[in-house]
């Protein structure tokens, strides 16, 4: 099947410019290549500083990659300019780790969810509100909560809100950058189930970035392991986590107590 997104030799370097113009160059991404098929989930794991978040920002076109290609539905989006990107951006949405900082505290829940629609100017005010309210209900927040400010919600509710905002433009690819990491266990499970539900009803493709191997195994159709800006291992969860071939993967597995691999049942939860 034609992949939804295919990344080829993606490189991202940051240079810290010194006073005299000569500075250090840090390679955050080093020739990263992978692809994800439509409707599937790629779980990306790796230690802190391995380049997971940089990859997320590059794929969401929030950072410019230094070189390499990002094929999305047959177009190289890494080569597009800001104006052309405007049409692509709604297709790829990012959910951040900490909903407390990814939701503007001055906004109400309704404003949060309508903001993307407002920015893209595709709908009238009434239709926009209808869509937003329907979406809020879909992700498990009642209509009565729509006028509350984001500070009045719990962590789990806020992350639901952030997911609702990301879904409001009906994206094809959802990048979840440590989206469950700031939540406690029971809430993590609820949101993970919500994600699976949404995936099957909206035919979403996920790039699920995490350092939680159990969650990666639970949600991912495949797992890719990142280490120092490279993808060092990729495959189905049972293989990658059951018989790790790379040292970095072994390190991650060894650091996680208990058994990790609980394969996802065919046909969802």
């Amino acid at each position: 099947m034609q992949p939804l997104i295919q990344v080829e030799y993606l490189v991202k370097r940051y240079s810290s410019r010194g006073v005299l113009g000569s500075g250090e160059v840090v390679s955050a991404l080093n020739e990263v290549s992978f692809s994800v098929a439509p409707g599937k989930t790629l779980a990306l794991v790796g230690a802190s500083g391995s380049g997971k978040s940089t990859l997320a920002l590059c794929l969401a076109c929030l950072e410019r990659s230094t070189s390499g290609r990002i094929w999305f539905e047959g177009r190289d989006i890494a080569a597009l300019d800001e104006k052309q990107l405007r049409a692509v951006r709604p297709q790829i949405q990012l959910v951040f780790q900490d909903p407390a900082s990814s939701l503007n505290p001055r906004f109400t829940a309704l404003e949060i969810v309508t903001e993307p629609l407002l920015v893209q100017r595709k709908w009238g005010t009434r239709e926009m509100h209808e869509r937003a309210l329907a979406l809020l209900e879909r992700i498990g927040l009642s209509r009565g909560m729509a006028s509350r400010r984001t500070g009045e919600f719990s962590g789990g509710q806020r992350q639901r809100l952030a997911i609702a905002r990301a879904l409001s433009l009906a994206p094809k690819l959802l990048i979840l950058d440590e989206a469950l990491s700031s939540l406690d266990c029971s809430v993590q499970a609820q949101i993970a189930n919500l994600l699976l539900e949404l995936q099957s009803s909206f035919v979403l493709t996920y790039l699920f970035i995490t350092h939680d191997l159990a969650m990666a195994a639970h949600l991912g159709d495949e797992i890719a392991v990142m280490n120092r800006g490279r993808i060092v291992e990729q495959g189905v969860p049972e293989k990658v986590l059951g018989a790790p071939s790379h040292e970095a993967t072994r390190g991650l597995v060894a650091a996680t107590p208990g058994s990790i691999v609980t394969p996802r049942m065919p046909g969802g939860l």
Partner: peptide, 13 residues
């Protein structure tokens, strides 16, 4: 801030 990034992410000028 992440909320500015998020807004850039859905194409805000």
């Amino acid at each position: 801030r992440d909320f500015v990034r998020a807004a850039r992410g859905f194409g805000a000028p």
